[in-house]
Design a protein around this nucleic acid. Structure first.
Lengths: 175, 175
DNA sequence: GGCTGTCAACCAACCAGTTAGTTAGACTGG
DNA sequence: CCAGTCTAACTAACTGGTTGGTTGACAGCC
């Protein structure tokens, strides 16, 4: 047996990510997380204080990763939406975790990292609008909301395709 | 005490609607539903068999009501999106219930009533496209998905307004 | 009297969180 | 190099409380 705190934390976080994405906060079972991580339940409380705080840690980590993986391209918003669409298709856990978070902890329970990243993206779009490379019939914040929202079309509609999202954003952004 | 089976069922359904919309299936408490309905817990099992089946009944009822309340207007899809937006603002339970359903029972667990209504709406849009009153750069089914999806923008973005949704759908539908 | 709606009390299963104790392995003094 | 010691990672078993579901008795109505 290897005694490695960080490695064990990692295994617990991985198991918790799957568990929370599948069952949500109320539905997740601490025993199952420990078992799937091959670790003891008490370690969850030693390392993450509580089930709730473990969930927050998982969300934080996943949101950070998603934000870093798909940087915004203000001059190509349809392409940005397409890359977001791809990301969510590859990592549906993020969307599921956010879904649980919003339903269980209220609709304004937004991870801090997301708030910061959001502000940066609005600024980037606004700058692009000033140079004229992005039309301004929508306010920068409105435009970002629309683009991001359209990129998650795949979770609402079974017939949604990458191409559909890209074309729709193309029409929203305009010429 | 009044002994009225239908009235008791109604009170239980109302309490269950609030409870399930707030806490989901796993998070909902049968005792709390009974208490809030002013009825006994055993009646839930007498009338609705199980917690799961009670949830299904609630969802069915709410979805039916929502479908009936907002009929489609193929020639005015922005207006349709606006009315859906209003409906969800007034009755957020429906969206929350659907959210729980999708997360807890899988993303293809769509109520039967919704499937039927969906097909009708696609047909209506397709007909409008044939008469030329709706442009056909999007397939009818794609168009409906986009319109419905945009109407729930309020659940993703805190800055979403009715006007924003209407304008966005306007650009999607085109002239 | 029998049928039906209602209920308090109950139960077995489950679950988040705790604790008292065990052990791997790093460190130390010789 | 090694015996002794100390610490922190780890664990099995337990606890207090909760939860979905049941049951047997009782009350009102034909």
């Amino acid at each position: 047996m290897v005694r490695d705190k960080e490695a064990t934390k990692r295994k617990l976080l991985d198991a918790a990510t799957t568990e929370f994405a599948t069952y949500g906060i109320a539905g997740a079972r601490v025993d199952r997380i420990a078992k799937n991580a091959g670790a003891n339940k008490a370690l969850i409380y030693a390392y993450f204080c509580s089930k709730e705080y473990l969930f927050e840690t998982v969300v934080q980590e996943q949101v950070d990763a998603a934000i870093e993986a798909v940087p915004i391209t203000p001059d190509d918003l349809p392409g940005y939406a397409g890359r977001l669409f791809d990301r969510y298709l590859e990592h549906p856990e993020v969307m599921r975790l956010m879904g649980w978070l919003r339903l269980e902890n209220g609709f304004d329970a937004v991870p801090e990292a997301e708030v910061r990243a959001h502000a940066d993206k609005v600024a980037a779009i606004r700058a692009a609008q000033r140079t004229g490379s992005v039309p301004d019939h929508f306010d920068a914040e409105e435009l970002l909301s629309l683009v991001v929202h359209l990129s998650i079309l795949g979770f609402t509609s079974p017939i949604a395709s990458r191409d559909l999202v890209v074309r729709a954003v193309g029409r929203i952004v305009g010429t």
